[in-house]
Write a protein that binds this DNA or RNA. Structure first.
Lengths: 330, 330
DNA sequence: CTGAAAGCGCTTACAG
DNA sequence: CTGAAAGCGCTTACAG
């Protein structure tokens, strides 16, 4: 590929001027020279080398995103929203997919540090992720899930505990006497918050409600595999609330396999509220996370110069659809 | 962050030796020196700057991937498989999400060229994408969809036409007299192949089969919006075969909304065959693309030195599940 | 307004 | 086995 030097030579000027033209500064260039440079660049198909630029400029114009599983539409939507927010600022979004594998997650962290991303948005698999590599490299991070309150890393997240409580309360208020929680595995991110919110709602009901927690990875297959024996048991719950929409999809599938009707035989509530959740059969009652707002705010935090780590909450919303059997009006 | 120079100074040696140590070559380093370098690097939290490395090495160890919509689980799975294949070779996968927007797609192409990815895997939104920027930069590309046979770019893809024919034939063989094709929009990638395969199967049946094509974007919402009036019409088809699983999900949702039972009142067939397709309600009959094989072969082609562009076909497979109403055994 | 030169942090012939 | 130096392709003070 041709370089700035080639362009300068063809245009009869210096590489400095080529740079000024392509960056609209920091020095002025006469209109005639500018035109010659542009013509030469076009003729040579010149594309500035972003690596060289980043090396001397000290900024890569890149924000890294690490997610547990990009095939989960929630993270797909999140990536899309972040890309919109990043592109608006002229930055590129680099996506690292952990594939539900903590070793892979660690590898992405290392790769991002080596590539000197300017900042990172992180959804970890773990409830206590290791951010030290980013901190040593002074790369600002915002996590999109709850963090210890003394964490040196910022976070933007809904209040998982309150959201899980809202979902469960919806069920208790509609008279369910036996409710299951399909939670993520122990030490998975948010699992503690889901459990606490769930239990808080059960208690708050003031009634004797049978309740039980089971756990699966956040995948349809895993959730379905856990749900089938659960729903086959004689004392199966009348409602199951899940830690993710993916798991709720697995429950829906398990119910179908067993010939249970949703919501008549089993109520199901999801969590995340992607666009997809409106198109399941039946459409899913779920807790919606404000993905676009979270994405936009994350980028704001990362690009502003905020000294101390901030821990912000975004508003969640219970979206009532068919899968829980409670019509929106009551 | 500390640099190789800092490490060299602390270890009492030169930057060349630091480089030899971190790259295991190309020159030998005495065990004692090596140990001093490693100790110094650890003490300083040294992380080689991948940008500087790439600039002098002439290789970024990066493969770019451009997909229409990362929230579509098919592309999510694809990204995962490609990342596995790339990481195995020590490369990083850079994902660009076009978000169903051709301007965004063009922007990613430019960004990848500027960042000097070593190679790219591309799923375009268009049936005749513009690869010229990659060609000018001598960046090898493999497309994962049909291309004009004289294309200078390689492709690895299933035979869309044969696959669409297989899906439709399954329907004609099971006696359907009225079949719809929910295809992508005109000029969307693969739309022509889907149509040809569909029509070929109708013809091959030797019967008078009513058939009709309608079109939507590859999203559940769009497919559902198109399907609802279609299924409300008095002459609605008895079966619909779709260009993607996402669209099939939209059809499933539309049927649910209208109180039509699948498969009793309407048979549905998808296309792509992600893991998710096994967990819809009812589980989806679909054409499975061998994602992992396609991903692995793409990386092979890109990293081998193949002079001429190759156009390879991968084997598809019709996966019969509940949504078409034909039991696997007949 | 423009050019020659140093510097970003690496790698790698070139000497020793 | 090791070091001094050039070079990758940019940007940006520094002179003029």
């Amino acid at each position: 590929m041709s370089t700035g030097r080639d362009v300068a030579a063809l245009a009869g000027t210096s590489t400095a001027v080529v740079s000024y033209v392509f960056n609209n500064g920091p020095r002025n260039v006469s209109p005639e020279t500018k035109e010659r440079v542009l013509a030469a660049a076009a003729q040579l198909n010149y594309r500035p080398n972003a690596l060289a630029r980043a090396l001397s400029f000290g900024r890569t114009a890149t924000v890294g995103l690490i997610v547990p599983d990009i095939a989960n539409p929630y993270f797909g939507e999140l990536a899309g929203a972040l890309e919109d927010a990043a592109i608006e600022r002229g930055d590129l979004l680099l996506i690292g997919d952990s594939r539900l594998n903590t070793a892979r997650e660690a590898r992405h962290i290392a790769a991002f540090v080596e590539r000197r991303v300017d900042s990172v948005v992180m959804v970890s698999l773990l409830d206590e992720p290791d951010f030290s590599a980013f901190q040593q490299a002074s790369i600002p991070v915002v996590a999109l899930h709850p963090l210890a309150s003394d964490s040196q890393v910022s976070s933007v997240t809904i209040d998982y505990e309150a959201a899980a409580e809202a979902a469960t309360s919806h069920l208790t208020e509609h008279g369910f006497e036996s409710i299951g929680l399909l939670n993520g595995p122990a030490h998975s991110v948010g699992a503690d918050q889901h459990r606490r919110g769930f239990l808080r709602a059960i208690e708050a009901s003031g009634r004797e409600i049978r309740h039980e927690e089971r756990n699966s990875d956040s995948s349809r297959a895993a959730a379905s595999a856990v749900s089938i024996p659960w729903l086959e048991s004689s004392d199966r719950p009348g409602a199951i609330t899940c830690a993710t929409d993916e798991q709720a999809n697995g429950v829906l599938h398990a119910a179908y396999r067993l010939g249970l009707r949703v919501p008549q035989d089993l109520a199901v509530i999801g969590f995340d509220g992607t666009e997809h959740s409106g198109f399941t059969v039946p459409p899913l009652t779920t807790v919606r996370q404000p993905i676009r707002a979270i994405a936009a705010r994350s980028i704001e935090i990362l690009t502003g110069d905020i000294a101390a780590p901030v821990h912000e909450f975004a508003a969640h919303e219970l979206v009532v659809r068919d899968s829980c059997g409670c019509t929106p009006s009551d």
